[in-house]
Every structure is written in structure tokens, then in C-alpha cells.
Amino acid sequence: MVKITFDKNGLRHEVEAREGDSVMRAAIENGVPGILGECGGNLACATCHVYLPDAWMERAGEISEMERELLDCALDVRPNSRLSCQIAVTSDLDGIVIGLPEKQV
């Protein structure tokens, strides 16, 4: 299992995520508030928006053109924004602290 911590203004949720799942799925299945994942991971809704620590950006993998296009329409997008349905849980992410936006919609 991979330890992932979600942080919204200091309020933290730590989850044990399965490798191969998406970060969005791990958050939803563990009841983390603040991630909606409306479309179920079909890259259609931009409601699983998260912020990665700069040092972890590369480890989370490449951002596709389709993700970029949709991510730009999330709320309060920053340089370290990602859609968490497009990040696969791998052992490389063990210990990561992922920031959550003020709101998804």
C-alpha cells in the first residue's frame, strides 16, 4: 500500500492507497472530503483537482493534452495543479502530501 495524505488548509486525511488505482479513486474510496470525481475518472469534469508539492510533480507522471485542456477550466488553477484521476498510485508517491483546492465547483 502507498501512503497518501490529503491536506485542505491544514486539515489532513491520510489514506492507504492501492497501487494501480488513481489518486482520485483512492480519495473517493476513503471518503476524503474535497474531491468529487464527478465523472468517475473519464476526464470529463475537472472536479478532482489537486495541488502537488513542486518536488513531486515529475514523479506523478506526464500531463496529457486532454488533461491540460480540462484542467485549465478548474477553479483556482496553479502551476502545480493536476487532475487526480490522471495520476496513478505508484510506490514513487509513498509519503506524498497532496493539497486540495478551496472548492471543486
Binding site: N42, L43, A44, C45, A46, T47, M66, E69, L70, D72, C73, A74, L75, Q104, V105
Partner: peptide, 17 residues
């Protein structure tokens, strides 16, 4: 999925706001 791309953007959170 390709057809949905512009629609997803037009109905994403920022556009809905």
C-alpha cells in the same frame, strides 16, 4: 470522447461559475 472535449470544457467548473 473526442466529441466530448469542447463540451467538457464549456461545462467545467470555471465556465459554470
Amino acid at each position: 470522447m473526442e466529441l466530448r472535449r469542447p463540451l467538457n470544457v464549456a461545462l467545467a467548473p470555471k465556465s459554470v461559475n
